[in-house]
Amino acid sequence: MTLAQPSPRPALLDEALALGGPIIVFDGVYLAFDEKVILRDVSFTLQTGHTKIFLGASGAGKSTVLRLIVGLLKPDSGRIFVNGERIDNMTEDQLMAVRADLGMVFQEGALFDSLTVRENVGYKLFEELNWPLEEANRRVEEVLGFIGLGEFIDRMPSELSGGQRRRVAIARAMAAKPRILLYDEPTTGLDPITALTVDEEIIKLRDLEGVSSILVTHQLRDAFFVAEHSAVKNGAEMKFGKAEGNKADEAEFIMLKDGQISFEGNASELRDASHRDPYIHDFLN
């Protein structure tokens, strides 16, 4: 199954942000709430089609990074570029256009209680993009099929398990075909088997749909699984295997400590760093 293509972008920008281009850039971002510094001089670049995995203790500022990307928070200083546009100085109205190409999976899903699974997943299509009803419904059924929850389409969120809610949240985030997906602790509180299903969805979206993603988690097992595996589709069959060669470098870890980046690199570099850095060693063990 091939999901439809994302919304069009100017040709020059499209070329600049092609595979490997800088789709999200943080440049010296600083954010504090009153006296408490949340992020201090944070800079990184997410390349198109790649994944960044943010690790760190609770309160290290991981979720704040995602909220800054979506424009739910504004930095005190520094610059943030999303999809080639500087967003840190945009108004709420201007941000709406940027958000059209972003999908975010919130902690606990944040599904709308009063809407069915169909209405939740198709929310953006029905309410904001005004897709024709038939086309929107087809798309909703398509993404629910993609995450394997087609039969739950008319249920209310309260009738779903934690894992199903999280997967519906992923379906909602991907329904409008964004180029960037942000996952905020998508597997926290889930049993290992359900967490694995969610991890596989993240890999599928990255490897089969070319979605660039940022994953915030403190579930090391899930983080390494997403970083070190890739999805390959062979006809109707979907296979997950160990990522090798360049593919293994497409997922990078960023370790946040006290609001600062203390490590950036791929999975094997992170393991090596744990021998040298006592904080990373403690964290990984």
Binding site: R67, D93, M96, F106, A110, K124
Partner: peptide, 14 residues
Amino acid sequence: VTDQIAALRALGTD
């Protein structure tokens, strides 16, 4: 408190 309003904003709704 359940982030539904943040989700609304992230989905492009004021």
